[in-house]
């Protein structure tokens, strides 16, 4: 793979050899490119600045590991993808830590008659393959709008799937509660 004029192998090699000016030129040229890439992937979000800076830092720190100077593009692409997926994976973990004490409320921790009879396995078994796929993408860190684009549908359709899955779980639990009530009444 040959390099583009802006990122020719000679420039990369000089940067790798410690030429600060070459490194500066290289990173300066990468910056708008990375910004355009991240905006294309996640839109004009506040996270874009951090993603660009973090990717530049990753390239800056790993330039010496680049075996072939003419492979900068692939190297920068990998760095950008690592940062993008770090963002996805970190999206909800932090929020859950932040909000768990209040949201969800204490109800989720309160054992119920139905709750004791249905474990996580059964909760999972209630999900349709499509709902499970959506939930997996959500738990990976994608937003519903992004999931919709990945699956080729609308955000509203994705949310409808999630709502149906939740309603199904709710109906199943209501059936269990009625069954338990009848059972207790017959004893």
């Amino acid at each position: 793979m040959a390099a583009s004029r802006e990122f020719d192998a000679g420039l990369v090699e000089r940067a790798q050899a410690g030429d600060e000016q070459a490194r500066e030129i290289l990173l300066t040229r990468l910056q708008p490119l990375l910004r355009a890439f991240f905006i294309k992937r996640i839109g004009r979000k506040t996270e874009v600045d951090d993603l660009v800076q973090n990717t530049l830092l990753r390239v800056h720190g790993g330039l010496e590991d680049l075996n072939h100077a003419d492979r900068l593009k692939a190297f920068a692409m990998k760095a950008a993808l690592f940062e993008l997926h770090d963002l996805y994976r970190g999206r909800y973990g932090t929020k859950e830590r932040l909000y768990d004490p209040e949201f969800p409320p204490n109800h989720s921790e309160r054992p119920t008659a139905a709750g004791s009879s249905i474990d996580a396995e059964r909760a999972l078994a209630m999900l349709t393959p499509k709902a499970r796929r959506i939930l997996e993408l959500r738990e990976y860190g994608y937003r519903y709008q992004e999931i919709a684009e990945m699956i080729g549908t609308t955000e509203a359709a994705i949310k409808m799937q999630v709502k149906r899955a939740f309603d199904k779980m709710r109906d199943a639990l209501a059936t269990v509660i009625v069954g338990l009530t009848l059972l207790l009444g017959s004893l």
């Binding site: 969800p104 309160r110 249905i118 639990l173 509660i177």
Partner: peptide
């Protein structure tokens, strides 16, 4: 019922 469903949802 909603609270129980919510708990299971979180569990899933």
């Amino acid at each position: 019922d909603l609270a129980a469903a919510f708990a299971r949802w979180q569990q899933a």
